[in-house]
Amino acid sequence: MSANLLELQGVHTHIGAYHILHGVDLQVPRGQLTLLLGRNGAGKTTTLRTIMGLWQASQGRVAFNGQDITRQHTPQIAQQGIAYVPENMGIFADLTVKENMVLAARGARTAAQIDNQRLQWIFQLFPAVEKFWNHPAGKLSGGQKQMLAVARAIVEPRELLIVDEPSKGLAPSIINNMIDAFAQLKKSGVTILLVEQNIGFAKRLGDTVAVMDNGRIVHAGTMAQLAQDEALQQRLLGLSLA
């Protein structure tokens, strides 16, 4: 079994006339939390969408669990145990929290058919999901919507969770709750790939890190190494993690 659950090798992605990814090489180690960092427009979201088959790679290879998924469609990719939470969260605002969760639970037609033990575990991770169970999802706060989006992604067991900017626009207390939840998810054996701009969030959670610039991975290593090297931080990100 490979040490890497997910690997991208020489991935190029075109969107219309635009060449966005220029040979991305990315490794996501099994059982770890990998951060994908970079300035706005570096290609981070395009990388996630390419992994999920929402945009097709024009060249290169995406492998999950050693299997080539480059040409697979999004439903096929999701069925292999990959969950994706986009930056806009993708919740159904007119449905209740409960109805959003039922839709995400493939084997359930009612809330009673969701695995109760797993649901109670999710409630412990995200108490707001239980508190607002019967409320319209569109009336939740931004932080509560983000909690619902992640909870919905893990209502079924997943090997890999991919999340695009989970802390964006959230209050510090909600960010701390999100950090605790991701730490518990990782402890449970879920491999996690996060795009993140909040450097404090990144430092507290990350095992490994890849930094993107102009559609390429320009640095890969441990989060601890990057956090300790201010010159490297300035060169790659134009800021200090201190």
Rank of each mutant, 00 (worst) to 15 (best):
V102W: 01
P127K: 05
V209N: 00
L36T: 04
R118N: 13
G38E: 08
G169N: 02
Q32S: 08
I192C: 09
T110H: 15
Q76V: 13
L37I: 14
A93I: 11
W133F: 06
N40H: 04
R30S: 13
L232P: 07
M223A: 15
N134D: 14
L6D: 12
P136M: 06
G38A: 11
G107C: 05
F132P: 01
H73Q: 05
Q32G: 11
V218C: 02
L205K: 14
R61M: 12
A104P: 05
A183D: 12
H135L: 01
M52S: 14
H12M: 13
L161N: 03
A111L: 14
D68M: 15
R30P: 11
E159A: 14
H19Y: 09
T74R: 13
A112F: 05
K44E: 08
H14Q: 03
A153N: 08
A57F: 06
D180I: 02
R158H: 12
L48E: 10
V150G: 02
Q59A: 15
I175G: 04
T47S: 14
N100R: 02
I69F: 12
E165V: 04
A105F: 09
G169C: 05
V211N: 10
E230A: 00
L185Y: 00
G189I: 08
I179N: 04
A63W: 00
L103E: 02
Q27Y: 07
L103M: 05
N198Y: 01
V209W: 10
V62D: 11
G60T: 02
V11H: 09
Q124M: 06
Q234R: 04
W133C: 02
E87M: 05
V218T: 11
D115M: 11
L160P: 07
Q27T: 06
N116Q: 14
A128P: 01
Q9H: 02
V218E: 02
Q184T: 10
I154C: 03
L37N: 10
A17H: 07
A128F: 07
L119D: 00
Q59Y: 13
D213P: 01
P136A: 08
D229R: 11
I51R: 01
D229F: 07
L239V: 15
E159D: 14
I82E: 02
L37S: 13
Q117G: 11
D115L: 02
M101R: 07
Q56N: 10
L237M: 15
G90R: 10
P136T: 05
S240R: 13
L205E: 06
Q124K: 08
A202E: 01
G169I: 08
L35I: 03
L36S: 05
M52W: 00
A171E: 03
Q233L: 13
Y18F: 09
F132E: 08
G41E: 13
N134G: 07
G238V: 12
N198T: 03
I217W: 06
D94N: 14
A111V: 15
Q80F: 02
M178G: 01
L193K: 10
V155E: 08
R109K: 14
W55I: 02
L232W: 10
F123T: 10
G31K: 01
F126M: 01
E99M: 03
S173E: 07
I82W: 11
P136E: 04
L26F: 04
G66Q: 13
A149M: 04
E230Q: 09
L236C: 03
L226C: 11
E159K: 15
R158E: 13
G43N: 04
V85C: 05
F64T: 11
S58G: 09
I199F: 11
K139T: 02
D94C: 09
T74E: 13
F92C: 00
I154G: 09
S240Y: 08
L54D: 08
